[in-house]
């Protein structure tokens, strides 16, 4: 090493630096590659309608993955998002039969925020590992949802037109859900870069001790963060039910694993301190296309889960290698 000069940086190290500085480039290349493979396997499948559909399905996933992105930036994770989204969707669908849609939506977001708050208090104040805490809350929420279902058995359910328009509709071939998603994504991306709160998420995830020495009281940030994550998961549930149009007790639960995978693929470090929402959005698109591809190839559900699990592990392990020496 002592003889090495600035000129002769090994290719491996240069590549690692490039990957770290420009995480979006390889992701977009991967996305385009997958689309090309799909088009080759099923010529003609990629058209305007398919693209709109892919975006429609990617958006609820991307919103759910925003919960993972934000919590992972602090070194945490939120495994309750699947059931939280389901709770919001189910509560909204049953409340809308007796209330105005706007009120039903407001009511439905309340349990989402409360669950998030409980997660935040457990993780921030009592220092329970977020993974265990959010898993526990998701168990409680699952039971709670079933109890709730029995109390509203008679009321039936409905999807308000506004949500159906948002979730499924297209205007001039462009999915309506972008109306919600584009501003939301902009707020998250800018919020992470240009607000004190966003900076603190990175700071806590990068080095909680350094943040402490600079006067940051981490628990306050964590509590607010998980409440926010609950709210975002609730919103994702509402968009998703507008797309699927059939509220059930396990509506958004299968989206949990992909939401983690999307954030990890998108370059957000599961150890915290590094990443952003832009990558996560591309990650959600990649996973949606990959799901289509696996369906076309008739890969069974089991193999899909194995693949997702290994993707998370491989990306994380690669991350350890990339960050540790340079």
């Amino acid at each position: 090493m002592s003889t090495g000069t600035a000129v002769a940086i090994p290719i491996g190290r240069r590549l690692r630096r490039f990957l770290r500085d420009q995480p979006l480039v390889p992701l977009i290349v991967l996305l385009v590659g997958l689309v090309i493979v799909l088009e080759v396997l099923r010529p003609g499948i990629v058209n305007e309608r398919w693209i709109a559909n892919t975006i429609k399905f990617a958006i609820p996933l991307a919103i759910l993955a925003s919960c993972q992105t934000l919590t992972m930036l602090t070194g945490g994770i939120d495994l309750s998002v699947g059931i939280v989204a389901t709770v919001s969707a189910f509560v909204m669908a049953t409340q809308v039969t007796t209330h105005d849609p706007a009120i039903a939506i407001a009511i439905s977001l309340l349990p989402a925020i409360l669950i998030g708050l409980a997660n935040g208090i457990g993780a921030g104040v009592f220092r329970v590992h977020p993974l265990i805490m959010t898993l526990g809350l998701s168990l409680i929420a699952t039971g709670g949802l079933q109890v709730y279902q029995r109390t509203v058995l008679a009321t039936g359910s409905a999807i308000p037109d506004s949500l159906a328009w948002l979730g499924t509709g297209r205007t001039n071939g462009v999915p309506n859900s972008l109306v919600l998603f584009v501003p939301l994504a902009a707020v998250i991306i800018l919020g992470l870069r240009r607000t004190g709160f966003g900076r603190l998420l990175y700071a806590i995830g990068d080095n909680e001790n350094a943040a402490r020495l600079s006067g940051v009281r981490a628990w306050q940030v964590i509590v607010v963060l998980y409440a926010l994550s609950g709210l975002l998961a609730g919103i994702a549930g509402l968009v998703y039910v507008g797309l699927i149009k059939a509220p059930s007790l396990s509506l958004a639960v299968p989206l949990l694993l992909p939401s983690v995978a999307a954030a990890v693929i998108g370059g957000t470090s599961i150890f915290g301190g590094r990443g952003g929402y832009g990558g996560t959005i591309v990650g959600a698109l990649i996973l949606t296309v990959l799901t289509t591809l696996l369906t076309v190839l008739q890969v069974p559900e089991g193999a899909r889960r194995i693949l997702f699990g290994f993707i998370i592990l491989a990306v994380t392990a690669a991350h350890v290698r990339i960050t540790e020496d340079s």
Partner: peptide, 14 residues
């Protein structure tokens, strides 16, 4: 800028 963010969570005056 970290010590400033500790007290001010809102938008940053760049």
């Amino acid at each position: 800028a970290l010590p400033f963010c500790a007290g001010a969570w809102g938008p940053i005056d760049m």
